[in-house]
Design a protein around this nucleic acid. Structure first.
Length: 1004
RNA sequence: GCCCGGAUGGCGGAAUUGGUAGACGCGUUGGUCUCAAACACCAAUGUCUUCGGACGUGCCGGUUCGAGCCCGGCUCCGGGUACCA
């Protein structure tokens, strides 16, 4: 028995290895199109000749194509990453053929959390891991044959680069936002204003409400003046509620949080009041909104940014409080419903809470404030439906009818938005309505016919009622009338609010740009410009100090002229907010980019990147661009004219289905011994097994596997079998896709993978095969579904990879990666190669004159390829090449006149094979600057057209007719045709529609 | 909940302005070549069919000579966003 089993195993082993060896031999013999040799040769040529270096000065028109630069992660590239790079490369190469001076650079966003987390674990300096990762990226990028101008590479973590990131920070620190001129200005103009007028006539963007005269200002100490100025700076230090992530030991910006958890790592985040550096992006809210109108981005991204900025128009109203001097200011978008107010709610963190709390309510309010503070951001978000609050005991006074309005606190009112207080109109706002129902408060209706029993009515149509002077007005008119009345009464004004918050800029981390600030007697001062960069110091550990200071505080002598330096670093988005300008300047002497280069290249014409940066990078770089423009450093105020968001490439995850077999045995001492075995059931067998619908065949297979498992115990231990039990609980387990061919699991590979962790696995096969489950999901290491481009390039070549990634589907759409499909594209390239070569692989391109038909195929393709590149429809472009190649193969066309043009056409997509064939056709220079073929209509002009003839809109037959026929002639010929007679069945047509050159439709 | 996309064969997708639905590729089936396999090549391939044809672009309805495309109403899927007053 044992011998027999071994024999069978040995036999199948031989069978399965034989064809593999043959396949390898075959590959070498069939290497007509030797992609690996070709691709290596031309990549070396491009590098040696600097083929793609953009000219510093040129008479040619400029065109700037940029990809969002990657963060060099340790995992390297997977096939999803190059998608956008391939598309941008095609466009860049196309523009070069059209005679543009193209700037197409690449670099690395090389500061960031993962390298630091790795450093904490291993002690390895982030610089070292980052450099290692960058060289992997570079190798992977190079082998795909991109036409990047590497001479302009940037790395955000190098001192030569971050010197200028720090320099921009200094500019922000030394600027304020003047609402009168509607731009950021030098702090000097603010100080001049203070010296002349104090705060009078000042229109500045600030959160503070300073009120002083010129004389006061002059009397202030340096420290007092510094404190005032701090509240106006574009980069400022302030106490604010921040998103603190204890697990990462740092604060996070709003866009770095998803569902109340940190985007990196998924750790909980809590609200904490801390002193932090922030950027006054809110000053630009309106301009960021307006700018969207003039840039060519997808509506989706524009909409996300609009929502993020969150403009809302309404009014601010202040309410008097009974028996108190305090006034509560609220913001509302519906001042027309002011008579519907039945209570007020202020945030638990509101500064008046303790003052408004009466003695009787003190205990309750204090308990509630404590409860609210204990909730994390995550809890607040997930428990939205939970209504909580408490009554302060105080009352506000209605400004129009003098009614008493109870003041409550509740955590549905956010301290950070508006004034942190609302006038509750339960009839018109669902949250107010829920609160009113829960605490049994009044719900007065203010719109005619309003039903307030089942919920709030936030319709902006209807006639106002029960509202004194607003009665009878439609909502939209009432809003205006209410604002007018509020202003006349002096209790408020029309106001616009934005949801956008100032961006927290400090990170309590090591691997980022140091903030060039030191504190002299507690006053923040900048490190002088000529002493930048302030380089990142060495530290003994990449962890906070014992007293909770950020890692930089561990550095020896982290000070400037004896004064302590700021210990926090800049966030990830600092370096990426301006990198597009650094690429413009090749020489990099002097400024962040030279005036000449900034003037020549202006902004990015075409930007490729993921939509996930909509509220982060894409907003911040717009902000910095506008700021640098205000300060006169840039002539443009939008960084990216056109934006394309490539879709994600999804992975094809594979699953095996594991059930646990428990066998019970008795040993010599007659004691029971339990053993557990992993049994893997093939997909359909597992499905039937779970549903208790196993077939007799399934049971035979199951029994086989169980017996096999038992045998391993028999043969190794001296035990007596008692019983076996197979669990009905089946776990679907993600497995590495390299162990699966199609949907069939290579069970030998599976057993030997992971150091043989599964060496004792048993399989229940379906017709001799183990079939895996599969699912399309995001490519990720943890799902073992990552496809590495290295493997593809090795097996099929870079040109195949490039074409295939484009062929997969529309660029902007998410689509699954399918390994089978790549063969088709590779086959196409081989077929393309054979247009130029015979069976013996000799070059057979001839000088013969092209036929009319061949020219027609060529020009049809020129037209299609041009149109497709222009509208970024690269998938249909690839199929046009396939059609063209198929047609020319059928025509047995090997003529230079045709093929030469075709090679230029395909160069953007498949540059290596194009260079090779171009070279073989006798050209000594790179194909990359050859003129793009011009479409000539004359080759497509036809003398006849195959008209589809429809009856009542249904196509029945086609008829070939000369194109110079008149409408009547067409109608006559069609109606007289045999086919028509058959369909007319002797009836007279009611109507005949003829569109010359297109269709004929007959109505019967 | 709100906002934005999308839904077409077994699969990825094509149809650019309302005018022959399913280009191109994969897969599948049959064939040629081969001792055999791989490669390559040829042919077929939306569904049903009484072989006449009928039906067919998520569902229901509308506009039109004609609708995958336009309009109205749904369903499902994907993305964004949320006590934002």
């Amino acid at each position: 028995m044992v011998h027999g089993a071994l024999f069978i195993l040995h036999y199948t082993f031989c069978l399965s290895t034989l064809p593999m060896r043959n396949f390898a031999n075959q590959l070498e013999e069939n290497m007509d199109y030797n992609f690996s040799e070709i691709e290596k040769r031309w990549q070396a040529y491009w590098q040696q000749n600097q083929t793609f270096a953009a000219a510093e000065k040129s008479d040619k028109p400029k065109y700037y194509v940029l990809d969002m630069f990657p963060y060099p992660s340790g995992a390297g590239l997977h096939v999803g990453h190059p998608l956008g790079y391939i598309a941008s490369d095609i466009y860049s190469r196309y523009k070069r053929h059209l005679g543009f001076n193209v700037l197409h650079p690449m670099g690395y966003d090389s500061f960031g959390l993962p390298a630091e987390q790795y450093a904490i674990q291993t002690g390895q300096h982030p610089k070292i891991t980052t450099e290692a990762n960058i060289s992997t990226y570079r190798r992977q990028l190079d082998q795909i044959g991109f036409s990047f101008d590497w001479s302009r590479e940037v790395r955000t973590s190098t001192p030569e680069y971050y010197k200028w990131t720090q320099w921009i920070f200094v500019q922000l620190f030394n600027s304020w936002y003047n609402k009168a001129s509607n731009k950021a200005e030098d702090l000097e103009t603010l100080i001049a204003h203070f010296e002349a007028n104090g705060t009078f006539y000042l229109k500045a963007h600030t959160d503070s409400e300073f009120d002083f005269s010129a004389a006061d200002w002059k009397k202030y100490s340096e420290k007092e003046q510094a404190a005032v100025l701090m509240d106006y700076r574009m980069a400022f230090l302030a106490d604010s509620f921040v998103n603190w992530c204890p697990a990462l030991g740092t604060v996070l910006a709003n866009d770095e949080i998803k569902d109340g958890l940190s985007e990196r790592g998924g750790h909980p985040v809590e609200q904490k009041k801390m002193q932090q550096w922030s950027m006054r992006i809110t000053a630009y809210a309106q301009r960021l909104l307006d700018g969207l109108e003039k840039i060519d981005w997808t509506d989706a991204i524009k909409e996300i940014q609009r929502n993020w900025i969150g403009k809302s128009k309404g009014a601010s109203i202040s309410f008097d409080v009974e028996s108190s001097e305090k006034k509560i200011e609220v913001f509302t978008t519906r001042p027309d419903t002011v008579f519907g107010v039945s209570f007020m709610v202020i945030a638990p963190e509101h500064e008046y809470v303790s003052e408004l709390t009466t003695e009787a309510q003190k205990e309750e309010i204090e308990a509630y404030v404590k409860y609210a503070a204990s909730r994390t951001e995550r809890e607040r978000q997930t428990e939205v439906k939970k209504i909580t609050g408490a009554f302060t005991g105080s009352y506000a006074v209605h400004p129009f009818n003098g009614k008493q309005i109870p003041i409550w606190i509740g955590d549905y009112v956010l301290a950070g938005y508006g004034t942190g207080a609302v006038m509750a109109v339960p009839s018109g706002d669902q949250r107010d309505w829920d609160f009113a129902k829960h605490f049994n408060l009044e719900i007065p209706a203010v719109i005619e016919g309003q039903n307030v029993n089942d919920g709030a009515d936030d319709n902006k149509s209807g006639i106002i009622c029960n509202s004194d002077f607003l009665n009878g007005l439609p909502v939209k008119k009432a809003i205006g009338a209410a604002i007018k009345a509020i202003q006349e009464k002096g209790i408020g004004k029309g106001q616009t609010n934005y949801r956008l918050r100032d961006a927290v800029f400090s990170r309590q981390r090591y691997w980022g740009e140091p903030i060039p600030i030191y504190f002299e007697d507690g006053i923040a001062k900048t490190v002088p410009e000529n002493e930048l960069p302030l380089t990142l110091p060495e530290v003994d550990k990449y962890l906070p100090t014992e007293d909770g200071e950020p890692p930089l505080a561990r550095a020896k002598d982290w000070s400037y002229k004896g004064n302590p330096l700021e210990a926090s670093t800049m966030p990830g988005w600092a370096g990426s907010s301006w990198y597009l300008y650094r690429y413009m300047d090749k020489l990099r002497e002097g400024d962040f980019a030279s005036k000449e280069s900034l003037y020549y290249w202006k902004n990015v014409d075409l930007y490729f990147g993921g939509a996930e940066h909509a509220t982060g990078h894409l907003l911040y770089s717009r902000f910095w661009t506008k700021f640098l423009n205000d300060k006169g450093f840039l002539s443009i105020d939008e960084p990216f004219k056109k934006l394309i968001n490539q879709g994600m490439i999804l992975g094809n995850s594979k699953f095996v289905y594991r059930s646990i077999l428990t066998t019970t045995w008795t040993n010599k001492e007659e004691k029971e011994v339990e053993k557990q075995h992993s049994i893997y059931l093939s997909k359909s067998i597992s499905e039937r097994f779970v549903k208790d619908e196993s077939t007799p065949d399934d049971l035979i297979e199951l029994t086989k596997a169980v017996e096999e498992a038992k045998r391993t115990v028999y043969t190794s231990e001296n035990l007596l079998w008692k019983e076996s039990e197979l669990s009905h609980k089946i776990a679907a387990v993600n497995i590495d896709i390299s162990m699966v061919e199609g949907v069939e699991l290579d069970t030998d590979k599976f057993k030997t993978a992971n150091n043989g962790k599964e060496s004792t696995a048993h399989f229940v096969l379906d017709e001799g095969k183990y079939i895996c489950g599969s699912e399309v999901e995001k490519m990720s290491k943890s799902k073992f579904n990552v496809v590495n481009p290295d493997r593809i390039v090795e097996r099929y070549g870079a040109d195949t990879l490039r074409l295939y990634e484009m062929f997969l589907g529309p660029l902007e759409q998410a689509k699954p990666w399918d390994m089978e499909g790549i063969e088709g594209v590779h086959r196409f390239l081989k077929k393309f190669w054979r247009l130029f070569h015979n069976k013996e692989n000799s070059f057979i391109v001839s000088e013969e004159k092209a036929t009319k038909e061949e020219l027609k195929t060529l020009h049809k393709t020129i037209k299609k390829i041009t149109e497709d590149i222009e509208r970024f429809s690269f998938n249909t472009g690839v199929s046009a090449f396939m059609i063209c190649t198929n047609e020319l193969t059928d025509l047995k066309c090997h003529k230079k006149e045709i093929l030469e043009q075709l090679v230029i056409l395909i160069e953007p997509y498949a540059p290596h094979i194009a260079e090779e064939l171009w070279n073989k056709m006798g050209y000594q220079t790179s194909i990359s600057t050859a003129n793009f073929p011009k479409f000539e209509k004359s080759h497509l002009i036809e003398s006849s057209h195959k008209y589809p003839v429809s009856f009542n809109g249904k196509m029945r037959f086609t008829i070939e007719l000369p194109l110079d026929l008149s409408k009547d002639e067409i109608e006559k010929t069609v109606l007289e045709s045999e086919d028509a007679a058959k369909w007319l069945e002797e009836k007279t047509p009611k109507k005949v529609i003829v569109v010359p050159g297109r269709i004929v439709n007959i109505v019967v």
